[in-house]
Design a binder for these strands. Structure first.
Length: 787
DNA sequence: CTCAAGAGCCTTTTT
DNA sequence: GGCTCTTGAG
């Protein structure tokens, strides 16, 4: 029995294809990672390909890590030589070696979105551009779009002649790029663009990598943009010994899951792959191993409404399963409350694990209410996305110190921390130093060293020198190989007084920040222990710059996860709650109002991604009324609900006000061939009165009805950020109480234990609280204290 | 230079 | 509704 026996015929065909371009159209849940890993194994084991010659590219570190693990498991020997990494880290690795050819220093820093914003602000200030007329956001996205299309500042300038707005953009782009170089920094888009540039201008570098990467595999190919395409197609177009271009390029993707157009993804990369590479072998994987046929049918029906797609239809022999459900609640509070209590019951009564559940939504802002409700019920959870750990103030501050020590050319980092903690260095001083630096063609930090010769600084001079010597001392300490990164961070915290200042604050918020800083120290320690290369400050900063929040999602953590539909791509959960299914929310009003009709198709693909995350059950929901940006909106159910055939869906409404589930043309749902008005029901208001829509009866079964555990109202607004909360792990509870004992709960206060039911290793404890009534909770999480 | 209060803007999605 | 930037008083 070989490892290939478990593959279906199409999968096997893909695995065995070993020469020339291969396009695998892999539907959701069709085992594409299996195919990729088995193909790698096949190349090595059966065709004697050197592992060193294989490159596998993914989009997220999580996907890379997963693939690495699975490859390690099935490839016996030499698997560590396979290069498995993300687009961005692949490029960083190449650039660290060759970027000096492009006039950058090899220890360049990587700018994240916040850094980019700061830089663009500086640029606008310098160029006297009013950021009210030219928004930073649009400037940045124009620059990003240009880079994604391989347009240099020079070309942008040339092509914008005669157009005033475009010329302004061009000048900003040019100056922005100039400053990046001065700061020895690259933004995310540069990482790939510069690598392509390197390959175009330095054939020795290109040849080296072409020779090395004889077999290239790309995952999530539908999300590649023009530069990324250029990168891989360049790498894959080496001439072999016989002078023939082999294009051993295997791409895996699903055009129905292309959801990153806003980031420059070019869906034509996958739709036209066969045209780009005429000898392409195309293999479709349509058997789904994840979901019930009901879930798949719903997904198929929804996506069928898109025009620009390759024809395919997922099928499964997993059986029919339960119908989907759709519930329309009155408010978003009710929606969150009922979802959480429904989940709570499934966990408590049916013994499900927390990590079988996911709550998915369109926008990050929707997570907050769920967070409140989950805290209230003591359900451990993790919110993926939103503000990433490394974007937190305290973390960015510490990192800015490290960056300053590592690369004094990075003005943005230096300016961030020059007055943190307070050193009495204000805006005036900073501006003077900046002018001096520009005038003398030096970096900001370099100018600080010459503070005494800067005119007009006055008292500022004496404030600057302690800062400079602090950095210099730390720099010289770093030169000692015995001095670890952990030592460095601790010294920064110590010498700046950053930590003691937080400790002195003595608030819950400061406590959270300290915990985050400790978490950062943990990450440094683990980096120093586990990195394959020699640990270095640059290396750590680079690793940190390229992590996405999703990368930290450990499957082993038994928690409920909350995330956007975008983040959920590639994941699966037995039970999925897809909430906020409303016109104006999902699809977002942006696409509804967009001039580009394909925008709504992207939104529909996002819906398809959401539906296909569910393995066993999918719960869809909407709210009639919802606060968005301080404004109450009244939205109709999403058009996507209307696109799911009636027989797959059990529908209900939370109030007595039920509406009938019409067919696809039903007017309750948003969407119609004609352009739809802004909001589903066409009304928004602040205060005032509003009459609910006329809704007719429904025979739908209300899956959330009569839930005994509903608590009305909510209160537990928490200051805890996700990163502090997700650390809660189930631990065997010390249970020193029994029925009749008085216990204390951290949130609910004092109550009396009325019942204890054993469930696995745990107990479900019912406690009567004076004011709140009876609550059920798991002993291991409730951390009840006997009084 | 720092802090506090108010104005205004925003949010769709992220490596 | 909440975050960030601006404004004005110490």
């Amino acid at each position: 029995m070989s490892i290939y026996d478990t593959l279906n015929p199409q999968q096997l065909e893909a695995v065995k294809h070993n020469k020339g371009p291969l396009l695998i159209l892999a539907g959701a849940g069709s085992g594409k990672t299996r195919v990729l890993t088995h193909r790698i194994a096949y190349l090595i084991d059966e065709l004697d390909v050197n592992p060193w010659n294989i490159l596998a590219i993914t989009f997220t570190n999580k996907a890379a890590k997963e693939m690495r693990e699975r490859v390690d498991n099935i490839v016996g020997y030499g698997s560590e030589n396979i290069w498995v990494s993300t687009f961005h880290s692949t490029c960083v690795r190449i650039l660290r070696r060759y970027i000096d050819c492009l006039g950058y220093d090899k220890n360049f820093t990587i700018y994240d979105t916040d850094d980019q914003k700061t830089l663009i602000r500086d640029v606008c200030k310098y160029l006297n551009i009013d950021t009210k007329t030219y928004k930073e956001r649009s400037l940045l996205s124009a620059i990003s779009a240009a880079k994604n299309e391989l347009i240099t500042p020079e070309r942008y300038e040339r092509e914008s002649q005669g157009d005033l707005t475009k010329s302004k953009y061009a000048s900003v782009y040019k100056e922005y790029q100039k400053r990046l170089k001065q700061n020895n920094a690259l933004d995310f888009d540069d990482l790939i663009f510069k690598t392509v540039e390197l390959f175009e201008n330095h054939t020795d570098a290109l040849e080296y990598y072409q020779k090395r990467f004889k077999y290239i595999m790309v995952d999530e190919y539908q999300d590649t943009n023009t530069v990324q395409f250029k990168l891989i197609s360049t790498l894959a177009s080496r001439r072999n010994e016989d002078g023939i271009i082999e294009n051993n390029l295997c791409v895996v993707g699903d055009d129905d899951q292309s959801i990153y157009k806003f980031r420059g993804a070019n869906i034509y990369n996958i739709l036209n792959f066969e045209k780009q590479f005429p000898s392409t072998k195309v293999i479709k994987l349509e058997q789904n191993y994840r979901s019930t046929s009901t879930i798949l049918d719903a997904a198929n029906e929804v996506i069928h409404n898109n025009l620009g797609r390759k024809d395919k239809r997922l099928w499964t022999d997993n059986g029919e399963g339960e119908p989907l459900s759709f519930t329309q609640f009155d408010t978003e509070y009710e929606e969150a409350n009922e979802i959480v209590s429904d989940m709570y019951n499934l966990i408590l009564n049916d013994g499900h694990d927390y990590n079988e559940f996911a709550i998915l939504y369109r926008t990050n802002a929707q997570s907050r209410i769920f967070e409140e409700k989950l805290i209230l019920r003591n359900i451990p959870y993790k919110i993926v996305g939103g503000t990433n750990f490394y974007q937190r103030k305290e973390i960015k501050d510490i990192l800015a110190y490290l960056k300053t020590i590592d690369n004094g050319l990075d003005d943005i980092a230096v300016k961030r921390i020059i007055n943190i903690p307070r050193r009495g260095i204000g805006l005036t001083t900073i501006d003077r130093v900046t002018d001096y630096a520009i005038w003398n063609g030096m970096s900001f930090y370099e100018a600080l060293k010459h503070a005494e010769s800067i005119p007009g600084l006055g008292r500022g001079t004496s404030k600057i020198s302690p800062f400079v010597s602090l950095i210099e001392v730390l720099k010289s300490k770093m030169a000692n190989p015995a001095y670890s990164l952990e030592d460095l961070i601790n010294e920064v915290l110590e010498a700046t007084g950053y930590l003691s200042e937080l400790e002195a604050e003595d608030t819950e918020e400061a406590q959270g920040r300290i915990e985050n800083i400790n978490e950062l120290i943990n990450k440094v320690v683990s980096y120093e222990k586990t990195t394959e290369e020699e640990p270095s400050l640059s290396g750590f900063l680079e690793e940190v710059a390229l992590v996405a929040d999703i990368d930290n999602l450990e499957d082993s953590n038994n928690v409920v996860v909350l995330m956007t539909l975008h983040s959920a791509k590639g994941l699966e959960f037995p039970y999925v709650y897809l909430c906020g299914m409303e016109e104006g929310i999902f699809p977002s009003y942006m696409c509804i109002n967009s001039d580009d009709p394909t925008d709504i198709e992207e939104e529909r693909r996002l819906c398809y991604v959401g539906i296909t995350r569910a393995m066993k059950r999918l719960y869809l929901s909407a709210a009639r009324q919802r606060m968005v940006r301080g404004e109450t909106q009244f939205n109709r159910p999403s058009r996507f609900i209307g696109e799911i055939p009636r027989y797959l869906l059990s529908q209900s409404s939370s109030s007595g006000n039920r509406y009938s589930a019409g067919g696809n043309s039903s007017s309750q749902f948003g969407g119609s061939p004609a352009k739809t008005p802004y909001y589903g029901s066409g009304s928004t208001q602040k205060g005032g009165t509003w009459t609910p829509q006329e809704n007719t009866q429904s025979d739908g079964k209300d899956v959330f009805a009569n839930n005994p555990f509903i608590t009305k109202g909510f209160g537990g607004s928490s200051k805890l950020g996700p990163t502090t909360f997700d650390k809660i792990k189930p631990s065997p509870a010390v249970i020193d109480y029994g029925v009749g004992d008085t216990v204390k709960h951290i949130k609910f206060g004092v109550g009396i234990v009325s019942e204890m039911v054993k469930q696995g290793d745990d107990y479900v404890v019912s406690v009567d609280f004076d004011t709140l009534g009876t609550k059920k909770m798991k002993a291991s999480f409730a951390k009840l204290q006997k009084l």
